[in-house]
């Protein structure tokens, strides 16, 4: 078994959106839609400011509420790596999964089905990194198997402080932000 996850270094990330551009071309994401995006979170008052920049997407949660709530069995956990996916031809477009996601990571594709980040499973199964990770000019993103203690993500998460998004929502997100 594998448990795929990402560790994203907010120290290196400059929020350039290359991950977004790469996702759009790799996956043919229709114009006007984003499977991944950048969040700039700044705190404080000028000039004493702190800012965290994050490349965000579906968190491929360990306890994904979007899967449980699906009445059609379209939203599912892939057999490999715990990746959360959608069978487009099983989806009725009821949008329950969208309501269920605390990260608002999903959207309705212009063709009617629920869509979102796939962790580029087609690339991963071919031995490559997801497009967003592979393209990042700042090398701020790391993808790999958390169950393998020697993987890059495991090692980097063991050595650095990190946080996940909205842990209180209880979904056990699998994207970790290094700081």
């Amino acid at each position: 078994m594998a448990r795929y996850a990402m560790a994203i270094d907010t120290v290196r990330c400059v929020g350039c959106m290359d991950c977004v551009a790469a996702c759009k071309t790799e996956n043919g994401v229709p114009e006007g839609y984003d499977r991944d995006w950048i969040t700039y979170e700044s705190t404080g008052q000028f000039p004493t400011l702190h800012m965290e920049i994050r490349s965000e997407r579906c968190n491929h949660c360990d306890d994904p509420p979007c899967v449980g709530c699906c009445p059609c069995g379209a939203s599912h956990i892939h057999e490999r790596g715990g990746v959360v996916l959608v069978h487009h031809d099983k989806c009725s477009g009821c949008k329950a999964c969208i309501a269920a996601c605390p990260y608002d990571a999903r959207f309705i594709h212009p063709d009617g089905y629920a869509d979102k980040c796939t962790f580029c499973i087609h690339r991963v199964e071919a031995g490559k990194d997801p497009a967003c990770v592979a393209v990042c000019p700042t090398h701020c993103m790391h993808f790999g198997d958390l169950e393998d203690p020697h993987s890059e993500v495991s090692r980097i998460l063991a050595s650095r402080n990190s946080h996940a998004l909205v842990p209180a929502a209880g979904t056990k997100p699998q994207i970790f932000y290094l700081r």
């Binding site: 006007g32 950048i38 979170e41």
Partner: peptide, 17 residues
């Protein structure tokens, strides 16, 4: 004060679903 700016602009999703 927190400024959380997102570049995501998905139809039906942003700024609130």
């Amino acid at each position: 004060m927190n400024e959380i700016v997102s570049t995501r602009t998905n139809p039906m999703i942003d700024p609130a679903i």
